[in-house]
Write a protein that binds this DNA or RNA. Structure first.
Lengths: 217, 217
DNA sequence: CCGCCAGTCATACCTTGGTTTGCTTGGAGG
DNA sequence: CCTCCAAGCAAACCAAGGTATGACTGGCGG
């Protein structure tokens, strides 16, 4: 990073450092978890309820959620469902003092990273948090890439989109021209524009990018 | 299916109908589960232990495993790990009379479909089994497709493999020739063979097939 | 009303891709 | 020893991809 002036590196601890959000109605527990995380250099913010968390302006950083299952207002499991319907895919580590098997299974089936019983071993929590952060990092990378491609695809005209779809399907220019009822030159023209707008130089790369656009799976 | 003679449809109940494997040391339980499954038209086989299951010649059909956690010999969870290391990815539905949260969480983290407490509601078991079978079907489809591609790729010579990799990367024939220190005509020759052996007619299809071959993810 | 832009086409030209034919070489296996 | 095959090269040829120039239309917004 030679081009970056050293002076501007001052607020280094941000943006890409993980931030863990802790929700528990027990202040002592919040403290304990925060201390534990701090001991391994992970920053955290604590909330007494899910409402508090939703009200707060949470910075956009990789991280995870540590959630008590038994919470005032809507419980941890309902909150998990709620977050998903809001399109928030932050990995969740549950913790609780009172839990039964069906509850933990439900949480895990809904995608929770872990489900710890209080009192848990520090290392178990740290392992879970570490795994959750790693997953979130991966998810964010994936999301960023997808959004870039979507932004590029958004600049395409309807016709260009049609042509791109056909090219990705492996159709020849000649065939595409026939399908769309236009001349081959025009197809080439659209095709060229697609390649430039999608910022690829080979059909192979175009295929890979196009596959990222709300396709099969 | 007009071309298929009706007479040959006799042994219809096989090959693609689901088969559920039940392992429980309690004979009554095995009976009950088998009856339940039969009531919705799902065939099953019961075993008294994991050893028995391993010893048996299980037909290759879509299905799942219903496993008691507490088993003679190695327990259900260890068996789950064991199956995975054996490359057997049959979805597992656990059931048990005695279980704690950590045990269920461990099972779910290891990929179990569900974890039911005896006595469970019939519908819960049926839902779990249905979901497990659906997953196994999807997995088998995926696996079949991958194996087909792998079989095709296996017929490629080392050189052809190199050329294919380069083509999929989007390299031009000219560049590939330079990279490999051979002439462009030869590259075209290999390239043509690759297209035939992989049974594709467009680079787009080749890219998709190549992506299925032990790539990134 | 005018300009912009998506969309269309033609002509011409060049680059890539792809096949065929024919020939060479070197190693593995019957 | 002879055959088979992966691997290579050349010449010639045709098909497909790609670009540039220039020109026309029709709709939409200022």
């Amino acid at each position: 990073m030679p081009p970056t002036p050293a002076a501007q590196q001052a607020p280094l601890s941000a943006k890409d450092d993980p931030l863990v959000l802790v929700v528990d109605d027990d202040g002592g527990m919040r403290e304990a978890v925060a201390d534990l995380l701090r001991s391994v250099g992970i920053e955290s913010r604590a909330f007494g309820s899910t409402a508090e968390l939703l009200a707060a302006a949470v910075p956009d950083r990789p991280g995870c959620l540590i959630l008590d299952v038994r919470l005032p207002g809507l419980g941890g499991l309902e909150f998990q469902t709620r977050l998903e319907s809001l399109g928030i895919a932050l990995p969740i580590v549950f913790m609780t003092g009172f839990a039964d098997v069906p509850m933990s299974v439900r949480a895990m089936k809904a995608g929770a990273m872990d489900f710890l019983i209080k009192p848990f071993r520090d290392q178990d929590m740290l392992d879970a948090v570490e795994a959750a952060i790693a997953r979130d990092r991966a998810r964010r990378r994936e999301r960023t890439a997808t959004m870039t491609v979507e932004a590029q695809a958004a600049t395409l005209t309807p016709r260009e989109r049609e042509v791109m779809a056909a090219v990705v399907k492996g159709r020849l220019n000649k065939q595409i021209a026939g399908d769309l009822g236009i001349s081959e030159v025009t197809v080439k023209l659209h095709r060229g524009k697609v390649m430039r707008k999608m910022q690829v130089r080979s059909v192979a790369d175009l295929v890979r990018k196009a596959e990222m656009l709300t396709p099969e799976e």
